[in-house]
Write a protein that binds this DNA or RNA. Structure first.
Lengths: 180, 180
DNA sequence: CATATCATGTAACCGGTTACATGATTCC
DNA sequence: GGAATCATGTAACCGGTTACATGATATG
């Protein structure tokens, strides 16, 4: 799924500007998709060219003018078709795990620091997800709630694993160092 | 961490050809890093140019000749330095979760199919990891075993979550459909 | 006065994927 | 005879990131 398609998805939940779409990516989608302005704005421009969205210039008082995008019928049917053809892939690109695999090349305090950092990042993500779930309020919450619950379960399992095994790893690495 | 750096990492565990490095990516690293021939071969060529690896042409009987790469001292210290500077990021790009968020735009059988497919993929990954753990045998297993255990715990939590909540989601979606 | 938020866009760059090109050997 | 495995590489392409460019208003 590319950024263009996901923009259609965001707009299927309601009209929005590029700036607002970015915030949805940052909040609701942050734990499974990343996109910046540099990909969102060009995507919206191309979707407009293709007739999948329409754009209205909205003047605001005490705020810069914004461009609010609205999904067309063609846009919605294109999005539905894209979903039907999408394979449910789930890809992880983790420097955290790379560092773990080569933990023996780091000093034990560095390993301790990276585990601690990972726990912090997990907590940030977890409170993010809990905030989303408490807000709720979406028109179609069932799938989104399932996804959020899934993400939470996975993050929590990672956190538990680190907390339960960190000392074992650290002690092993320290003993190895001494014996060298 | 880019492909070049990870190739140094693989070679720090022993000499290997590009083809063999690809197999390490597919087996030991598959659940947190993906790389194809199209990125590995050019990476090895550039590492050779930079003097971080050296290459020997090995003629084989009953097999095509291969190029076996070996880490230099400069290569190892470069790899150590890269690890020390690497932030332990953990990025997920999941079409599975995108599909879940927009589950209300799919027919219930499609949602059922994507959950089933995800369970199949998780089982494939789990047996992969278990195979790695049973083989063991690596020179420096502590970090790698921790990483594999982490990946297994996370995958298992996802599997459990799907199995426990799939019927709830499916029933809710079916009821919504009837009432429309 | 500085920082944060709101607001939109472009252009260069880059890492990685896909497809193409080639060819021997082994297993079914 | 056809598929799978071993083995290496190139070139076009593509999606996305980063940095740049601009500017108003609000908050501390």
């Amino acid at each position: 799924v590319d950024v263009k398609t996901l923009c259609l998805g965001v707009l299927s939940m309601g009209d929005a500007s590029g700036y607002e779409i970015k915030k949805v990516f940052e909040n609701a989608f942050s734990h499974f998709y990343v996109a910046g302005f540099g990909s969102i704005y060009p995507a919206l421009a191309e979707l407009t060219r293709e007739g999948l969205v329409v754009c209205s210039d909205i003047e605001q008082e005490k705020r810069p003018a914004k461009k609010v995008y609205q999904l067309t019928e063609k846009g919605l049917s294109t999005f539905r078709a894209a979903l039907s053809e999408t394979y449910p892939s789930h890809k992880v690109r983790s420097d955290f795990m790379v560092l773990l695999v080569f933990a023996h090349l780091l000093k034990p305090p560095q390993v301790e620091a990276l585990l601690r950092q990972r726990l912090i990042d997990i907590d940030v993500n977890l409170s993010h997800i809990n905030a989303c779930l408490e807000r709720g309020g979406s028109v179609h919450p069932e799938g989104a709630r399932f996804a959020a619950g899934f993400a939470r379960a996975v993050l929590q399992a990672g956190k538990d694993y680190i907390e339960q095994h960190r000392d074992g790893l650290l002690h092993t690495l320290e003993n190895k160092e001494k014996s060298q």
